[in-house]
Amino acid sequence: MEQRSNWGRLTRSPAFNGYALISPTALYALLLLAAPLATVVYLSFQTDGSGVREVIHQFTLKNYIEAWTDPIYRAIMLRSLFVSFMVTLATVVLAFPVAYFVSFHVAPNRKSLWLFLITIPFWTSYLVRVFLWKVILGYNGVVNSGLKSIGLIDDPLTWINVNVGAIVVTLAHAYAPFAILPIFVALEKIDRSLLEAGRDLGESALMTFWRVTLPLAVPGVVGAVLIVFIPTVGDYVTPDIIGGGKIPLIANVIQKQLLAIDNMPLGSAVAVSAMLIVGVISAVFVLANARFLRVKK
């Protein structure tokens, strides 16, 4: 009877009802994520058939040794991290003023309209937006044609396309809304009376922002950094289109190994290695940020 009573209290608890409500969806999502990931991890320890058959189910560490010691893979991985870091920096630096303006300087009844306008880029395909930047930055694109028409240049500029900078600009534009929204949410949660208290104590607007607004907005900034940094490392469409296939990132290497060369074990090892590197960097960033916030408090 006592066990039945305890079970009854458990089933009536809000926590149990909450877990029961989300469990079907959570299990479904876990299955969709775990099954492909487990398959990739399994394949990364197998042997490539080398023309005999696709995969020889024989355990080996050769794929990871090649992925970590080959200077080409190492250079491409470093380039991918650099591009992702620059995209994240540019996106967050440009997104913060927009989120700040909407949160603090737009009337409450117009904030929804501004957020609606910010999300308009999502109405078009990501691929279409990438091609538009190719048109804008191309050899005979909008920028070069405009500069030639007003007489600032005689020949088209070649350094604005097919380079890392063009990839960074394209990715920063594509992921801008992902950075604006979490920062805006964090700014909206700030108690405005804290800012008034800072001004009443004689702080300038700049110091109030530095000592009150920015620290309280850090959770949104952290969310924006992670939301932008993690997927941009694995982007392969933009480098392929904007870079003309001449500036591959790690995702392009994985795609080539899995589809073009059909070396699934090596491609899986490179993919798992990239995931581990990104995971470690993200974890270090989050832990360092948490420690910084504890010190500030």
Rank of each mutant, 00 (worst) to 15 (best):
E2F: 11
E2Y: 03
S5D: 11
S5I: 13
W7T: 04
G8V: 07
G8P: 00
R9F: 12
T11R: 15
R12P: 00
S13D: 07
N17G: 05
A20S: 07
A20Q: 03
L27W: 09
L27I: 15
L30I: 12
L32V: 11
L33H: 00
A34M: 04
A38E: 03
V40H: 03
V41A: 12
Y42H: 12
S44K: 00
Q46K: 13
Q46H: 10
G49T: 07
S50D: 05
V52W: 04
R53C: 03
R53H: 09
E54G: 07
Q58W: 09
L61Q: 09
K62I: 15
K62R: 15
N63M: 09
Y64K: 02
I65T: 07
Y73E: 08
R74V: 07
R79V: 02
R79N: 02
L81V: 13
F82Q: 10
F82T: 12
M86I: 09
V87M: 12
A90G: 05
A90E: 04
V93S: 14
A95E: 10
F96N: 01
P97S: 12
P97R: 10
F101Y: 15
F101C: 02
V106M: 13
K111P: 03
S112V: 14
S112G: 14
W114H: 01
L115H: 04
L117M: 14
L117Y: 04
W123A: 11
S125N: 11
L127W: 08
V128D: 08
V128S: 14
R129H: 12
R129A: 10
L132G: 11
L137W: 09
Y139H: 13
N140C: 06
N140Q: 11
V142H: 03
V142L: 15
N144I: 05
L147W: 06
K148I: 06
S149K: 14
I150K: 11
L152Q: 13
I153W: 03
P156K: 02
I160L: 09
V164E: 13
V169D: 00
H173F: 15
A176M: 15
F178Q: 04
L181G: 01
I183W: 08
F184N: 05
F184G: 01
V185W: 00
A186Q: 01
E188V: 09
L194R: 14
R199E: 11
R199H: 13
D200F: 04
L201N: 13
G202T: 08
E203I: 06
M207V: 04
T208Y: 12
F209N: 02
R211H: 12
P219M: 09
P219C: 01
P219K: 08
V221T: 09
V222M: 14
V222P: 03
G223A: 14
A224V: 03
L226T: 05
L226G: 01
L226F: 05
I227C: 04
I230M: 07
V233G: 00
V237L: 14
V237E: 07
D240H: 08
D240S: 15
G244M: 06
K246D: 14
I247W: 05
A251V: 10
I254F: 08
I261T: 12
N263Q: 04
G267T: 07
S268Q: 07
A269T: 01
A269V: 00
V272D: 03
A274Y: 06
A274H: 07
L276Y: 12
L276C: 05
I281H: 02
I281P: 00
F285I: 11
F285H: 01
L287V: 15
R291A: 10
F292Y: 14
F292N: 02
L293H: 00
L293D: 06
R294T: 11
V295N: 04
